[in-house]
């Protein structure tokens, strides 16, 4: 009798697989304490365009957490776990794709690497099918070292690093080296993440004032980003060196290999609908 029931269930699976495998998409921001990341971090244009590539475009969530703190903090990874768990439960998600930018990749790697830290993590890990990490700060950035050197008690405004926060400390080069060696998986010689972690690398900053491409996502950012290249390798997106971005997971592509007009993606542009980045991701997911 029991076997008969199971066969019946198998039959139901065979005719209606979609009812048991809902897919979902989550957008996970970088450093910063976000309350409206859709508008303030990503832009609706980008999110709406990317999710059109999903099987169920309306199954998406834009995460808003305090990623100014260390990645493991309850307001950081704990908040991410809370919002992802709610999304997974509400939509019965079994096939979750995460799209991260910058330090968001580190917070996701924290969850994937430390399933025993928090009772919510295993369920999330089991639901994740893929991570697309746009310009992840996997190896840290010398700019974080520059900001942290000396006694810093307060800092001026900045869109990239936040306010001299613990997240900035964490993204110093030697700090990330320690975390990659101890608490985060996915870099060379370390255990794998268990899920695909596909990286998009930004390799250059284009700030020529006569080139209209420099204006995507704001010309003023582009000019300033080129200034800070002095603290970075020649291959960088103005904030992160290419080797930092590609330190964990596998490189899906480096900007110029796929972007429209073979344009580079600065760190500002890689979270916006610049040079077809949005449609490239939409076609992939």
């Amino acid at each position: 009798m029991k076997i008969y029931t199971k066969l019946l269930l198998l039959g139901l699976f065979a005719v209606s697989p979609l009812s048991y495998a809902a897919s979902g998409l989550a957008f996970i921001h970088g450093t910063g304490n976000q309350t409206d990341a859709l508008s303030d971090y990503w832009t609706r244009d980008f999110v709406d365009s990317v999710r059109q590539g999903a099987t169920t475009p309306n199954n998406y969530v834009v995460i808003n957490c305090n990623f100014d703190q260390y990645m493991w903090e309850d307001v950081a990874a704990g908040c991410l776990a809370e919002q992802l768990t709610r999304f997974i439960d509400d939509k019965a998600i079994t096939d979750l794709t995460l799209i991260t930018h910058s330090n968001g990749g580190n917070v996701v790697r924290w969850v994937l690497s430390n399933p025993t830290w928090d009772g919510r993590y295993p369920k999330i890990i089991n639901a994740i099918s893929n991570v697309i990490a746009i310009a992840p700060s996997s190896g840290g950035t010398p700019l974080a070292d520059a900001v942290n050197q000396g006694n810093v008690f307060e800092t001026s405004l900045g869109w990239l690093l936040g306010y001299g926060s613990n997240a900035v400390k964490q993204q110093q080069v030697s700090w990330m080296s320690y975390y990659n060696n101890t608490w985060l998986n996915g870099t060379a010689g370390r255990p794998t993440l268990g899920k695909p972690f596909e990286v998009i690398v930004g390799s250059d900053v284009d700030s020529a004032f006569w080139d209209s491409d420099s204006y995507c996502a704001g010309y003023q950012y582009q000019v300033a980003l080129e200034t800070t290249q002095n603290w970075l390798d020649d291959c960088s997106d103005g904030f992160l060196e290419c080797q930092s971005q590609s330190a964990a997971g596998t490189v899906w592509f480096t900007d110029k290999q796929r972007t429209a007009g073979r344009e580079p993606l600065s760190h500002q542009q890689s979270r916006r609908a610049c040079f077809n980045l949005d449609t490239i991701i939409a076609d992939h997911i």
């Binding site: 700019l143 520059a146 001026s156 869109w159 990239l160 936040g162 950012y221 300033a224 080129e226 800070t228």
Partner: peptide
Amino acid sequence: SDPQAMATAGIIDDSSALT
């Protein structure tokens, strides 16, 4: 470079710089 330009480029500690 003035502090505003440095800040928008990721060095956010009111730095000025010269080459």
